[in-house]
């Protein structure tokens, strides 16, 4: 079995984003998805700080401190892009206008609960940003994360032990081992990395998986 690396995970998510989609990519791993979106197709990237039609990072020397993404990194604006204020940016999110939000996660539960903002550690300084708005607002919430923690525990769990970002909000999970749909009747495996059997994935994951959605 060969696990996907971060770039391969990003490319796998990008494959599922159709032309015309309005998409918000979370900070960190999800930001990489932008690099793998098909060239020549119109896909609209949204940023919480008031950008639609966000483009790639500028070449060295052409950064503009007034043009940054949600991670406060320099970006560009595509021809046809637009700027707007923060309340409008979140009206787009909360008002169900975004087709996809791609978010990182600490844990996702069988019911689609998402935990990605707080480890619950008593000395941690909490920070939430726009994660809770994206979790409830986007039409499709896609989660991108490693399948297992560093100590080998499944990040797909029966119930989240970390504080929730949103309840029953995740639609699909992309890990370095598999793609899994979250449906009312449970978790459906869509595909797996080469060399990984369903039984092995089931053993690693711990919670019940269904295999009926796997393409023959």
């Amino acid at each position: 079995m060969k696990k996907l690396d971060r770039k391969e995970m990003a490319a796998r998510v990008a494959r599922d984003i159709p032309e015309g989609a309005y998409v918000n990519l979370g900070i960190g791993l999800p930001t990489l998805v932008a690099d793998y979106l098909p060239k020549g197709k119109d896909i609209f990237l949204h940023s919480e700080n008031g950008i639609l039609g966000m483009g790639p990072k500028p070449p060295e020397g052409e950064q503009d401190p007034d043009l940054v993404n949600a991670g406060k990194e320099p970006v560009t604006l595509l021809t046809g892009g637009a700027f707007f204020h923060h309340a409008d940016a979140f009206a787009m999110i909360r008002g169900r206008h975004l087709d996809f939000a791609v978010l990182g996660a600490f844990q996702v539960s069988v019911a689609g609960d998402l935990a990605n903002w707080h480890t619950g550690a008593p000395d941690a300084i909490p920070a939430v940003g726009g994660a809770m708005d994206l979790a409830v607002g986007a039409k499709n919430v896609l989660v991108m994360m490693e399948h297992l923690t560093k100590s080998g525990e499944s990040k797909i769990v029966e119930r989240c032990t970390y504080p929730l970002t949103g309840a029953r909000c995740v639609n699909r999970i992309y890990t370095d081992l598999a793609v899994i749909d979250v449906k009312p009747d449970g978790l459906h495996v869509v595909d797996m990395v080469e060399g990984l059997s369903f039984d092995e994935l089931q053993r690693l994951t711990g919670v019940a998986l269904k295999k009926t959605a796997i393409a023959a």
């Binding site: 923060h86 940016a89 909360r94 909490p126 939430v128 940003g129 726009g130």
Partner: peptide, 15 residues
Amino acid sequence: ELELVPQGTLAERIR
């Protein structure tokens, strides 16, 4: 003292 507010809720409370 910190009052942590989700970003969209912060924006809408201001609006």
